[in-house]
């Protein structure tokens, strides 16, 4: 999956805005949104919030987790913990990127937050890489990844399943080879994940 596609999926997340205009309910396929009353908070999908913000028709109320204190705490936890910690949002990276991109004036201390989130991302990516490597090295029958977010899963998607698939193929052949002399073994018909990315 493209990162852009992941972003598209992430944009369905609801977020609270304070509109500066009046309007009735907007009927969308995904559900009704509104009504909009000036200076009364209402919840809209992220993509709509971004769009309204770009037209200067609303103020975005940043998600609760998007403040320096909480993010610092998460970062410290992430550093200490050997495993992945739970992130406040499944799409934290997407939300952060979109909100800090177009509505940085609505987020207090946007620059600090930007830096911290990038730190968290880096730490988690480093963890991810080393654990992927460990999984392959040990190649046990299963592994558990908890608390990964959409973007992170997406980033290892093309390589991990494919590599595991290959290991599986190398392993499965041993038994077949040892059992008998027959070579016309029914291999599992498998498809590569590589082009799914």
């Amino acid at each position: 999956m493209n990162p852009d596609e992941a972003e598209f999926l992430g944009e369905k997340q609801f977020i609270s805005i304070i509109p500066t205009f009046n309007s009735g309910v907007v009927h969308l396929i995904s559900g009704d949104v509104g009504p909009f009353r000036a200076s009364l908070p209402t919840r809209v999908p992220l993509w709509m919030a971004i769009n309204l913000k770009q037209q200067q028709k609303c103020k975005i109320q940043h998600p609760e987790w998007m403040n320096v204190d909480q993010l610092e705490r998460i970062k410290e936890d992430e550093k200490k913990d050997k495993f992945f910690t739970k992130m406040p949002s499944e799409q934290y990276m997407i939300e952060a990127k979109l909100l800090l991109g177009c509505a940085s004036d609505d987020v207090p201390k946007a620059d600090d937050i930007r830096t911290i989130i990038k730190d968290i991302w880096d730490i988690r990516m480093a963890k991810l890489r080393s654990s992927v490597n460990n999984v392959l090295k040990s190649a046990d029958s299963y592994a558990e990844f908890k608390n990964l977010t959409v973007m992170e899963i997406n980033s290892i998607r093309p390589i991990l399943p494919h590599a595991l698939d290959q290991i599986y193929r190398m392993k499965i052949n041993k038994h077949q080879g040892a059992q008998s002399t027959t070579l016309s073994t029914p291999f599992r018909t498998s498809t590569s994940f590589s082009n799914l990315s």
């Binding site: 990162p3 852009d4 979109l98 991109g101 177009c102 990038k118 991302w121 880096d122 997406n154 980033s155």
Partner: peptide, 15 residues
Amino acid sequence: KLNAWLVESGAILEA
């Protein structure tokens, strides 16, 4: 692709 996505918006998340 991921790197491109990370830098494409005006505000880059950077250390």
